[in-house]
Design a protein around this nucleic acid. Structure first.
Length: 272
DNA sequence: CAGATTGTTAGGAG
DNA sequence: ACTCCTAACAATCT
């Protein structure tokens, strides 16, 4: 689930829990898969150091330390964070655990092991190496126009391209397109400047709303498409409420695969 | 139990 | 060399 709003929420959580406390031990359950460097190097770089602050770019999280090294965290599809004192409270699927000298623990939790941990010298270096574009939370019309230049494909896969506006994931992409009233398969070259501007504005607005709601989807505004996604119908059906219709025009929400990802849209509000 | 799943990336086709 | 698309990755949930 971790798209930009979740990662931003994790960042704030870490800021409130993990800073300025010497690290006593670091364990990684499956370093060959999830750690991008040797486990001993990782431990030596961090044991005895403290986290001093955090940064975020798209879905990538950076933990600054009082040394010249920065921890990089990517949460994959199922990454989460946890902070607890007793080892007996270690969450299921804790894949990496930082124990602080005050005996509290910070855990990188990730059932599916798609997440990654690594080290970098600087955020700028990391951004360049990964070719990440400008953060989607503050995406300007100019940045989006630049990012879409010479692109030929459908707009939705481009919104998911982290080199254009990192932070947008599959669900947010659908929400942004719905709010901008654009069909997910619109070819990027056919977008008018006004539509690109609408898309950039919707991106900022959806992400700001999601961050404000701390990525808790049921707290999103009622006119959001996200309530119509299938996964929302399970809990909703228990209360007798389903939201499979467009919150704007009541048309049945369609599902199809665009760029290999499940895509939800309103065939009435979002015309190609 | 078959089929779905959030993100990223390698590999192939063009 | 670049763009675009697909499939694979691991594990879990429904």
């Amino acid at each position: 689930m971790p798209e930009l709003p979740e990662v931003e929420t994790y960042r704030r959580f870490i800021n409130e829990t993990c800073l300025h406390q010497p690290i006593a031990e670091v364990t990684v359950q499956d370093p060959r898969r999830q750690l991008q460097l040797d486990l001993d190097e990782f431990r030596q770089a961090l044991i005895g150091s403290q986290f001093t602050g955090t940064e975020r770019l798209g879905k990538q999280l950076f933990l600054l330390t009082d040394r010249s090294t920065i921890v990089t965290l990517h949460f994959g599809m199922t990454g989460d964070v946890a902070y607890y004192r007793d080892e007996t409270d270690t969450p299921r699927f804790a894949r990496a655990v930082f124990r602080f000298q005050n005996s509290f623990h910070f855990a990188f939790v990730d059932s599916r092991k798609f997440g990654r941990l690594g080290l970098t010298e600087s955020v700028a270096e990391f951004k360049q190496r990964k070719k990440l574009g400008p953060d989607a939370l503050t995406l300007t019309t100019e940045e989006l126009t630049q990012g879409l230049a010479k692109k030929k494909s459908a707009i939705k896969p481009l919104l998911l391209d982290q080199r254009i506006a990192p932070g947008i994931g599959n669900w947010i992409a659908d929400e942004v397109l719905f709010q901008a009233r654009l069909h997910p398969e619109r070819p990027a070259p056919t977008l008018t400047p006004a539509e690109v501007e609408r898309l950039a504005a919707a991106t900022r607005q959806v992400l700001e709303t999601a961050v404000r709601a701390e990525a808790i989807y049921r707290d999103f505004p009622a006119h959001y498409l996200i309530h119509a996604r299938e996964w929302d119908t399970a809990p909703a059906s228990e209360t007798g409420q389903t939201h499979l219709n467009c919150p704007c025009c009541q048309t049945l929400i369609q599902k199809k695969y665009v760029g290999g990802r499940a895509t939800y849209y309103c065939p009435n509000c979002q015309v190609v």
